[in-house]
């Protein structure tokens, strides 16, 4: 049998009514996806914290559901849904994708995996390949993140396969922030630890229900203090770190602690 004959066997002769039905299904699915992408983020902004993150994470799930349902409705209108026909169609599509759109198909599949494996969700703060930002949307092919400098970065889902993904809050409301302080070694450690602890405790940005920790590291050039605490709103993490740093420096100065700078590393030629 010729190729044309196989194709003719697989596909229906599509009537005008079926074309209209397919157009309506596509339009309906597209409208649903459009509304979900537009209204759920709008609605999410009217809620706070947990509800907001939940609503945002619904967007890609609803989009995937709409596409799958639309495909299930369209395919029987185009081909006879027998096992042989479906296998032939899938084989042809798979071949085409495998050669021509390998990376694109890989991203699409990785996009589906993200919905179930959830390495990142909308609202998460992630770092991939040195780019840090908030996941604003998870599209079919790529995730869109916005960096603290308000730059949009599109990261193809296929990075999921071979890149390390650092997720700072992992779908939760808590995100650890760290402020660093470098002091000359001659000081009262307990007094400095208490002062830094109180700096975090009195920050208006602090999520007081989460623990505060002061970590002390002994370095060749002095003492490195790491003040770790959680902000009340993870979107305010940089303002929180700024607040900790500014007030921390003032508090340490007031108790007579002296700051030091990390000396530049000398290169040996």
């Amino acid at each position: 049998m010729s190729d044309a004959g196989v194709v003719k066997e697989v596909f229906h002769s599509i009537s005008q009514v079926q074309i209209i039905q397919i157009v309506l299904i596509v339009a309906g699915a597209w409208s649903f996806v459009f509304l979900a992408q537009r209204w759920l983020p709008w609605l999410a902004e009217r809620f706070t914290r947990r509800a907001r993150l939940f609503l945002l994470s619904l967007v890609p799930v609803l989009r995937m559901a709409a596409i799958v349902i639309a495909l299930f409705m369209i395919i029987p209108r185009i081909i006879e849904p027998t096992f042989e026909n479906l296998a032939a169609l899938m084989g042809a599509v798979g071949l085409a994708l495998g050669f021509a759109f390998k990376d694109y198909a890989s991203s699409l599949i990785a996009g589906i995996v993200t919905l179930f494996d959830t390495p990142y969700r909308v609202g998460d703060w992630i770092e991939i390949n040195g780019t840090y930002g908030e996941v604003k949307s998870i599209n079919m092919r790529a995730a869109e993140i916005v960096t603290p400098d308000d730059t949009v970065v599109n990261i193809p889902h296929l990075k999921l396969w071979d890149q390390l993904i650092f997720n700072a809050n992992d779908g939760g409301e808590n995100l650890l922030c760290v402020a660093d302080f470098y002091l000359k070694p001659d000081h009262d450690f307990e007094q400095v630890k208490q002062a830094l602890y109180d700096v975090a405790l009195t920050s208006p940005f602090l999520q007081i229900r989460q623990p505060i920790n002061v970590i002390v590291l002994n370095k060749p050039w002095g003492i490195h203090y790491r003040l770790k605490a959680y902000p009340i709103d993870l979107r305010k993490q940089f303002l929180f770190i700024t607040d900790l740093t500014v007030r921390g420096k003032a508090a340490l100065s007031s108790i007579g602690a002296e700051f030091t700078a990390i000396p530049a590393i000398e290169t040996h030629q």
């Binding site: 109180d198 009195t202 007030r247």
Partner: peptide, 15 residues
């Protein structure tokens, strides 16, 4: 001491 809340400030040096 009727108003103990007046004996602190939410300030790094106020506790």
């Amino acid at each position: 001491f009727p108003h103990i809340e007046r004996a602190y400030l939410r300030h790094a040096m106020g506790l």
